[in-house]
């Protein structure tokens, strides 16, 4: 059987070899998909926020990866690359006390009221 721990701890398993889901080397998998995309502006901004927060010493790429791993395999399969990055950047910023959940939640509600698209929701 080829089961892996779902996130930080294996879920729903009474025993495990300790291998985690993201540790993929040598697993069975299908053909390599070769379609490619350019990134959207909001995705480039997520990337930029990660690099800037790292440059400024708030957290490192190791912290990003730790959260991506702990988010588990379902997140890998169901969220896009930069959606997962956004979640992981945000969690590191919360953990480092850069802003609070209350501040984040309030701001996200304000943004929802601005409009229905990413373009309309910018605070021009």
């Amino acid at each position: 059987m080829d089961r892996v721990s779902a996130a930080f701890y294996p879920v729903g398993m009474s025993d495990t070899d300790g291998r985690r889901w993201h540790d993929m080397g040598g697993r069975d998998a299908g053909p390599v998909p070769q379609d490619e995309h350019d990134f959207a502006l909001w995705e480039k901004r997520v990337d930029a926020l990660m690099m800037l927060c790292s440059d400024k010493g708030f957290f490192t790429v190791d912290g990003l990866r730790r959260v991506l791993e702990d988010m588990g395999e379902e997140a890998f399969e169901t969220m896009t690359y930069y959606e997962r990055w956004m979640a992981a950047v945000n969690q590191n910023l919360i953990e480092q006390g850069v802003y609070s959940l209350e501040e984040l939640g309030t701001k996200m509600e304000e943004i929802a009221a601005r409009g229905d698209s990413y373009g309309e929701a910018q605070d021009v």
Binding site: A40, M86, K107
Partner: peptide, 22 residues
């Protein structure tokens, strides 16, 4: 990828919020 014209997602709102807070 879908961008400015698509329906605003939770994660896009989080990006705008994090950026504005920073």
């Amino acid at each position: 990828r879908s961008d400015n014209d698509e329906a605003l997602t939770y994660w896009q709102r989080m990006e705008i919020a994090a950026r504005e807070l920073l």
